[in-house]
Computed example of a mutant assay.
Amino acid sequence: MKADIHPDYHDVKVTCSCGNAFGTRSTYEKDELHVEVCSACHPFYTGQQKIMDTAGRVDKFKKRFGR
C-alpha cells in the first residue's frame, strides 16, 4: 500500500434521534455522528410500521378501496 493516501480510521459515537447511541469505527472526520433512523427505531428491524396520515390520505384510500 502507498503511504499517506488512506483516510484516518478512528472510533465514532453514533447518536440516533430516538436516543439510542452506539460506537463504531469510521473514516468520518468528526468524533460524533447524529442520524435520524437506526436499527432500534427503524420499522424493518422493530416490526412496527408507522403510517403517516397526511391530509387524510390513508382514510381516503381506505374509503375508496377498503371493503
Rank of each mutant, 00 (worst) to 15 (best):
M1L: 11
K2Y: 01
K2V: 07
A3R: 11
D4I: 06
I5N: 06
I5E: 09
D8P: 01
Y9M: 10
Y9W: 15
Y9K: 10
Y9C: 07
H10L: 04
H10I: 09
D11H: 11
V12I: 08
K13V: 15
K13S: 08
V14G: 03
V14R: 01
T15F: 02
C18M: 09
C18S: 05
C18L: 09
G19D: 05
G19M: 08
A21M: 15
A21L: 10
A21H: 10
F22R: 01
F22E: 00
F22H: 03
F22W: 15
G23S: 14
G23Y: 14
T24I: 06
R25P: 02
S26V: 09
T27R: 05
T27L: 03
Y28Q: 11
Y28I: 14
Y28D: 07
Y28M: 14
E29L: 11
D31F: 13
D31Y: 12
D31N: 13
E32W: 09
L33P: 03
L33S: 04
H34Q: 10
H34D: 09
V35Y: 05
V35F: 05
E36P: 00
E36A: 12
V37M: 07
S39V: 07
S39I: 07
A40C: 14
A40D: 15
P43L: 01
F44R: 12
F44P: 00
Y45C: 03
Y45T: 09
T46W: 13
G47M: 06
Q49F: 13
M52I: 14
D53M: 04
R57W: 04
K60M: 02
F61R: 06
F61E: 00
F65L: 13
F65H: 13
G66R: 03
G66K: 04
R67W: 14
R67L: 13
